[in-house]
């Protein structure tokens, strides 16, 4: 090995020395867990539809149910195990959004209900709402002029 002089040489060396994530295994787990969560959503959707509800109502019920289940699993200390196994498989579906709100709520309970639970609840998911909602408002304004 040759002598390392510059920061860039060191960073390249570190890259070489650091093990990569097992991406194929991770993707496989993400695929089937993510697919399964969506399929559970689909079955709930079909059931609501079967009961004669409208599409939008069905979608909302799917979201609320999956969020509720994810919140329960988070509270039972199970979701983090699923997340560790499935990675994006449980993060990317709406369950990941729920987990990212529920987990700080539980963790920061020790700092009180107002500033702890209430204030820190959005430390992870806050940006999702900020960027999601802001972009939607921009889209809405553009829609007024161009559609």
């Amino acid at each position: 090995m040759k002598d390392i002089e510059t920061k860039q040489e060191y960073l390249d060396y570190v890259d070489k020395k650091s093990p990569n994530s097992p991406i194929l295994k991770n993707c496989f787990n993400a695929f089937w867990v993510g697919g399964l969560i969506c399929s559970i959503g689909q079955i709930i959707f079909d059931f609501c539809k079967y009961k004669g509800l409208e599409d939008t109502a069905c979608s909302t019920i799917v979201s609320i149910t999956l969020i509720g289940v994810a919140a329960l699993l988070t509270a039972l200390n199970i979701f983090n195990k699923i997340g560790k196994f499935a990675g994006a498989g449980s993060l990317v579906p709406i369950t990941g959004f729920a987990n990212s709100i529920v987990s700080p709520a539980i963790e920061y309970k020790s700092e009180g209900y107002v500033m702890g639970v209430g204030g820190k609840m959005f430390t992870v998911a806050g940006p999702v709402l900020v960027f999601g909602i802001s972009t939607s408002v921009i889209v809405g304004i553009i829609a007024i002029f161009f559609i």
Binding site: N26, T74, N80, G83, K84, T123
Partner: peptide, 17 residues
């Protein structure tokens, strides 16, 4: 973890490093 990273209940993966 709470101070430097994420809440314990967050379902994320720890990289191998």
């Amino acid at each position: 973890e709470k101070q430097f990273r994420f809440p314990l209940e967050l379902g994320n993966q720890r990289p191998p490093s």
